[in-house]
Amino acid sequence: MQTYIVLKHIHMLAVVLSGAFFLKRGHWMLNADDRLEAKWVKVLPHVIDTILLGSAIGLVVVGKWYENWPAWLSAKIVLVVLYVLFGTFALKRGKTLQIRLIMWVLAIAVFITIALTAISKAFPPSMLNM
């Protein structure tokens, strides 16, 4: 149980760091800030997201969720893929600032949905379940 709690806290910290840094990078993108091109800004999200993925896999293994895979976890995985796609278009591949802004907002909405799904252990997340 102790391992699960440690992994859960690492995962939650990585979620907060990932989300906060995504918001900051989006702010820099909207303001055409040169800091977005700094090497550490390009590397840090990969470090955070590797910790996030590693702790998620650890939670699945330690929690033995692979034995009885919950639907909300499948939903989270699909949502994470959408978040990555929207985030990529928001910060890199969007051709215009308007497209980047739309993708950034969509990515934020998906991020919030992922968090609510994790908290409620249901999809779609419902405030009534909390």
Rank of each mutant, 00 (worst) to 15 (best):
M12F: 14
G54D: 04
D49K: 05
A122T: 12
I10E: 01
M103K: 00
E37K: 10
F123V: 01
I5K: 10
L7K: 02
M1A: 07
I48K: 04
A32S: 12
V43E: 07
A109M: 09
A75V: 05
W40Q: 04
S18V: 07
G54H: 04
A122L: 09
I10L: 13
G26Y: 09
S18D: 11
W40G: 08
F123L: 03
V84C: 02
A56L: 08
Y83D: 07
Y83M: 12
I99W: 13
T117I: 05
V16Y: 14
L30D: 05
L79P: 06
M1I: 05
I108A: 13
T96W: 09
P124A: 02
F22G: 02
L7N: 07
D49S: 06
T50V: 01
A56C: 10
A118E: 00
G63A: 07
K95F: 10
K64M: 14
I51M: 14
L79F: 04
R93M: 11
A38M: 15
R25G: 06
A71S: 11
T96P: 08
S126K: 10
L106Q: 02
I99P: 03
A115R: 00
A20P: 06
G63N: 08
Y66N: 15
L73G: 03
L79D: 07
M127F: 15
D49T: 08
L17M: 09
K39W: 14
G87L: 08
S74Q: 11
V61R: 03
L13D: 09
D34A: 14
P125D: 03
L13I: 14
I119E: 10
W65Q: 13
R93P: 07
P124G: 04
A38I: 04
H11C: 03
K64A: 15
L128F: 11
V81Y: 07
A14K: 07
T3W: 14
L7E: 05
P70A: 09
H9Q: 13
R35L: 08
W28Y: 06
L101Q: 13
A109Y: 06
V105Q: 03
S126F: 08
I5R: 13
L106N: 01
M127R: 14
K121G: 01
N129K: 13
V84T: 03
G19T: 11
L23F: 15
S126I: 01
T3E: 10
I77Q: 09
K42G: 10
G58S: 06
L101P: 03
R100M: 07
E67W: 14
G58H: 00
T50R: 02
G54V: 05
V81L: 15
R100F: 06
D49Q: 07
K42I: 06
H27L: 13
P124R: 05
G19K: 07
L36Y: 09
G54P: 02
V61L: 15
I102P: 06
N31I: 02
M12D: 12
M130G: 14
K39A: 13
A115P: 00
R100Q: 10
D49Y: 12
A32H: 13
T88K: 06
I48C: 03
A75D: 00
L91T: 01
E67S: 15
M29W: 02
D33R: 08
Q2I: 11
I10Y: 11
L52E: 13
G54Q: 03
F21H: 08
M1D: 12
Y4F: 15
A115H: 04
